[in-house]
């Protein structure tokens, strides 16, 4: 079982994950239409690139944009949530071991266990805050669907199970399998759901950045302030 879910099934997961996201990126870029979007993408590559980078970078940095600064608490929760989601799976020592065992990659950087734990707890706590916020604030509740809640649960499941595995609560094998399978489920779902924002964020922000860089803020010395 372990061999299968960390072997062929994992490969299949990666193929779907990377294949699906590649399709998303290609489909998005091919669907950009300078006439319909009314942005002269090709005519002003430099302005476009500058605008796109400005837009992406300002929104990647905590409190880096006017919008983030307008919502200081939410921004804090948002960045703690996402920092854990990205950093832990990529740089966990336990995951790096697999890389070395399977592919002989020994140079992969890792984070300390303490940091991994802190980040994981961060993900779980902020997920609860995000869920409660969804249900409590009327302006968010009106937008919330079961789909949104499902996606949060799917995203957090590998972290909860992983945390239990690492801390060997009991039933190690069950939680290990639950962790691996929920992780694979998450990766498979990403391209097919709005979780595809792992690339979609950069595409969408890049596009609006180009729009303002090329067209809607080109008269301003510094472009749009974001």
């Amino acid at each position: 079982m372990y061999q299968f879910i960390t072997g062929p099934l994992l490969w299949l997961t990666f193929i779907i994950f990377f294949g699906g996201l590649t399709f998303r990126v290609v489909w998005y870029i091919r669907g950009l239409d300078w006439k319909l979007d009314r942005v002269a993408y090709r005519t002003y590559p430099a302005l476009g690139l500058k605008g796109a980078l400005q837009s992406i970078i300002h929104w990647l940095i905590p409190y880096g944009s006017y919008g983030w600064r307008a919502k200081p608490l939410y921004t804090l929760v948002f960045f703690i949530f996402h920092a854990g989601l990205v950093v832990v799976p990529l740089f966990l020592a336990g995951h790096a071991v697999l890389l070395e065992e399977r592919w002989g990659i020994s140079w992969w950087p890792t984070i300390s266990m303490a940091l991994a734990d802190t980040l994981t707890i961060g993900v779980m706590v902020t997920a609860v805050i995000i869920l409660v916020r969804r249900l409590v604030l009327p302006e968010v509740r009106i937008l919330t669907t079961f789909y949104d809640i499902f996606l949060i649960l799917v995203s957090v499941a590998p972290f909860v199970s992983g945390f239990l595995v690492v801390h060997q609560v009991r039933d190690y094998t069950f939680w290990l399998y639950a962790h691996i399978l929920s992780g694979e489920l998450l990766l498979i779902l990403i391209p097919f759901t709005k979780l595809f924002h792992v690339v979609g964020f950069f595409l969408s922000r890049g596009q609006i950045g180009m729009d303002f860089g090329i067209k809607r803020a080109w008269k301003s010395r510094k472009g749009f302030a974001w």
Partner: peptide
Amino acid sequence: KSRIRTWLEICAHCG
């Protein structure tokens, strides 16, 4: 096209 369809789909409903 992709811009508007993506906007509609990707909206995180964050409010």
